[in-house]
Structures are given as C-alpha cells and as structure tokens.
C-alpha cells in the first residue's frame, strides 16, 4: 500500500505577540505526536525550513493592521485548504484594537520620529473580516489542549469539541466557589466564552474575558447589576476594554459607558 503523505501544517503570523503560535511549541509532551502526524511546512518560530504550499491546515495568528497584511491574508487563504484562526488578535483584533476607539495617526505622531513612513490601517481587524475562516479558536493566549483538540479533530475529520458556553460552567465543574456572588473581584465569567478552564477564578481572581464574549453575552445585564453595586461608568468601560475590546458584544458594552 502506498504510504499516505502527511498533511502539511503552516503557521502564519500577522499583528500579534507570537504567544499563541508558541502554544504549539509549548505542547511539549504532545509535540512529537504532532510532528509525527503532520509535516510542519511553514513555522518560522520552529524552523527556517519552509515547504511550498498548498497547505492542508493553516493556523493564523494576529490581526490585520496594515495594507500589506490585508493583501497577504488573501494569499494565505488561497494556499490553505483549512484556515483556523488562533487567539484574540486573529478572532477579535486583539489588544491592538484599542486603537479602533481612537485616531491611530495621532498615536503615530507621538510615538514615531517620522510618522510619514508608517503605513497603518485605521483599525485592527480580525481575520474573518477579510477572508473565510473555517474555525476560530479563541483565547489570549489560546489553550494548548484546545489547540491539540482542534488539530486532532481536523486530522480525523470530526467536529472539534470546543464548547461555546460561559466560563461559569467550567468554574462549577471544577468546584470553584463563585467570586461574583461571594463579593470577590469583578468577574466577566458569565459573559465570557469558556476554554481556559476557569484559570483566573481558580486563583481567586475575576475573569478578564480573555476568550471573548460567549454567544448571546448579556453584558448589559451584568453592567446594570454592577452599576447597582456602585461600579462607576469608567470602571464599567474598562472592564470590557482589553484583549477582546473590539469583539462586538464587548465593544458595544464599553461604548455604552463612554462619556
């Protein structure tokens, strides 16, 4: 029987910190299994060797922030059978999408000696705003076990088990006592997409919303409850302005508390 060729895996970087693609190298124990199942064809963080496309699976990290990247993502899409975005930048614009609420030219004029040479788009946007995306894996950074689950699912032609429920379900499954109800720090868990395994609540911190809004996130109700407990408009705004500030539910909620 002819040996089947291994699927080609490529990793692409756009505007990002590299943390999500490093989750793949961070797989440690499972890394050899990954290398055994796929040909790592393009992954500059791991190897300078680059194999030509097309690629069976492309993992895309980062958001689109420059005219050059807005073109490049189309090339990546054309060379990829399956395109999976990884992380908050690629799925929601990332922390750099905080610029979307202000004038980026103003920032450039302050930061750079010669801002005329800077070519930046007015907004940092997610990959799905530009090309068709087969699957979006959330998180800042992504959870390596979820990455392995998505890769396993695509390699074996099944649906990934990535539930879109709230972080609260993970908390309760782990038996973590709810900080919101026991008067702990503010927690975005009830409006945030699961996936981290309730990491922050397990250390008695509120959820920061790293995985972005869950489906049907009722941020308005949570804000109204907090406002009733004395949270100021400014605090409400900044609760939603972080890694997923430009994800629709969080964006609308923070804008509702702008002065």
């Amino acid at each position: 029987m002819k040996q089947q060729r291994k699927p080609k895996l490529a990793v692409w970087k756009f505007a990002s910190c590299d943390g999500c693609q490093l989750s793949l190298l961070d797989c440690e124990d499972e890394l050899l299994a990954v290398a055994g199942e796929v040909e790592i064809a393009n992954f500059p963080e791991a190897s300078r060797a680059v194999a030509r496309g097309p690629y069976d699976i492309s993992l895309v990290e980062g958001s689109i922030t420059t005219p050059h990247d807005a073109e490049r993502i189309h090339q990546v899409r054309r060379a990829s059978k399956v395109l999976i975005t990884i992380g908050a930048c690629a799925t929601a614009g990332g922390i750099q999408a905080l610029r979307n609420f202000k004038d980026v030219r103003e920032f450039a004029s302050i930061v750079y000696a010669n801002p005329a040479t800077i070519e930046a788009l007015a907004k940092s946007t997610p990959i799905a705003d530009h090309v068709f995306v087969d699957f979006q894996l959330r998180g800042c950074p992504i959870n390596k076990y979820q990455l392995l689950e998505v890769l396993s699912a695509y390699l074996h032609g099944r649906k990934p088990n990535i539930p879109n429920m709230s972080v609260c379900v993970e908390c309760k499954q782990r038996g973590i006592v709810c900080g919101l109800v026991t008067h702990g720090p503010p927690c975005l868990g009830p409006v945030t997409h699961a996936g981290c395994g309730a990491l922050c609540p397990s250390y008695h911190r509120g959820c920061f919303g790293c995985y972005g809004p869950k489906e049907a996130a009722n941020t308005g109700s949570l804000s109204a409850w907090w406002a009733g407990k004395g949270m100021t408009e400014r605090e409400l705004l900044w609760n939603y302005r972080n890694f997923n500030a430009y994800a629709e539910a969080f964006r609308k909620e923070s804008e509702a508390h702008e002065e």
Partner: peptide
C-alpha cells in the same frame, strides 16, 4: 438572564449531560 448556566450547575436536581467523543 446571562444564560451563564450557573442556576443549572448549582441545582441539586438538574441532571442534563452531554457526551463528547475525544480522539
């Protein structure tokens, strides 16, 4: 309602489950 599911998680009679096949 936040549809966060906390009420069902703490309910002593809620019994719903799902199964996941993991490869």
């Amino acid at each position: 309602c936040l549809t966060c599911a906390n009420c069902t998680m703490v309910c002593p009679t809620c019994f719903c489950s799902t199964v996941e096949d993991v490869t």
